[in-house]
Each structure stands twice: as C-alpha cells, then as structure tokens.
Amino acid sequence: MTPREFHLNPADYGLPTRDELVDLRIWDSHFHGFYGAASDPVAQYRANNFYVERMGIERSISLEIGGTLANPLTPAPHDDAVRAILETDQDRLSGITPIDPGFPDESCAKMEKWIRNGPCIGIKYVGGNKTGVACSHPNNDPIIRLAAELDATIYIHTWLKVGGTPRLPGRDNLPGESTPMDVVALARRFPHVRFICGHSGGDWELGIRAVRAQKNVLLEFAGSDPHSGSVDYAVKELGTDRIVWGGHGPSRSYATELGKVLDADLSRADRMKVFGGNFRQLAAPIFKRKGLKLER
C-alpha cells in the first residue's frame, strides 16, 4: 500500500482528508526520526517517511541532530549521514541540536558548529543530564545569548512527573530535567528571547498555569497522552499565538498528536497557527539567515 492509498475516507468520520491536512501546512516541531531504540537511525527516518507522507506533514524538525539525546556533546556515528539528509531533504526536514547546560562552553562550541556553520536552526534541552543542571541555572545564560545572536529556536523538554515524599508534581523528574517553572525563570532573564516549553510541562493543567504570565514562553504539546480539552484550555489561557505543534513520531502516533488539535474548537486560521504558523513565525529569522524557504 502506498502512503496515499486509503481504504477509509476521513471525511466520512468527521476528520480532514489528507489534502485538507496538507492545506493546514503542518510543521512538526518535535520530530524524533533519528532517535529511539533503532539500531539504524537513518533507516528509521526513512521508514517513518511513509507516515510523514501519509498524514500530510509538510516539515519535520528533528531534535537530535549532532550527537544523541543521551550524550548530546559526543559525536554520533550517524552524524555525517544525518547531515547529508538535512541537505538532500531540506524541503521537508530541519534540525535542531541538543545541548547540555552542564557544559556551557562545549554547548556553545556545538552551536557554532551545527548552527552558525552547519545546517541546524535551533537548540534542544533534553530531558535530564548527568550533572543535574536544569535550564534555570546561570550556566544557561551564555547558551541563550548565543542562541539569540544566531536567531536559533530554543526547545526545552519539560515535565512535572508526580512522585516523591510528599507526593507532588515534578518530584519524580530526572536530574537536570527542567520543569515549566525552570523555563519561566530562564525566560524572565531573557525577555526578548522566545522559548518553547516542551511537552506542555508533561502535566498540561499545571504547565499552562506555570507559563501563562510569561509571554515569551510558547507551549508545545507533543509526547504526552492526548487529553480532550487540553488545547482548548491552552488557547483560553495563553492565546493561540503561543502554541506550537509537535508530532513526536515515530514513538508517538501522528494520530495522537493531530487528534489533540482537531479536538479543539478552533477556527481554521487558528488551527493553522497551531499546526505550523506559529513555529514558522518563530523560525522565520533563522530561515531567512540561512536562505531556507518558509513558504511552499
């Protein structure tokens, strides 16, 4: 079966057809095509393209370019192959590179290599690190200053895992795994820089509360279970302009992540903002700087 061959017509089920998804111009700001248990990250990327094509995703932003999420500052064997794919697939694939705030100098050096002198458009804070340094730590200031200078997008993994004694949200986070409150603390120091608070804080009801007053923080919903009403709530509290979409494939289903937004009561214009317009607006300066196409 080809990616565009369907035995169900989505319109019969109150859902957009593939053509209608394409028209929404969906940009996946949270793509894990090269990450996971796969022994061959490039093969995994190519296999997942079946679903990218099938679900009408226009552009994917890979979060693991250069090194791995587990060891962001250590070059990975597949780095060269991925760099080549970023070149050949630049019409539908972009990359951001993971950094480690435990090592700010090395992180900045990596940004010089992969962003200023390389193909990447931004940085990612991964979900924890060996030194236990979250994104609110002063170590992050030189990283953010450089990101701002490069017009790089900034994605920060956040969670609020319930646990500990007394049992509370965030107390089961990994060492160095940021919370939405960490993002806010960082964003206050850089009011002219915009940040993406990833995974909606893990617990969106609390994550949205945490970031709502900090206007330079955007929210991204991927990588957590789909909860009906969550995007409606985010729009109510943050406004449509502060939400970006992530697919988190292949470990999450595009179905899961698309469903979160299709569940929400949004106008077509607002749905387009969430699905891609807001991220394109965020990334426009670095796309322009690198001569990349924002429009189809």
Partner: peptide
C-alpha cells in the same frame, strides 16, 4: 478522556 479523533486517526494512519 482521550479525543475521539485520536483513535479514528490511528485507523487512517
């Protein structure tokens, strides 16, 4: 609890 859309989209995906 989950959006109904999610499960139907899985069949399409």
């Amino acid at each position: 609890y989950f959006p109904l859309e999610t499960a139907i989209l899985k069949l399409i995906e």
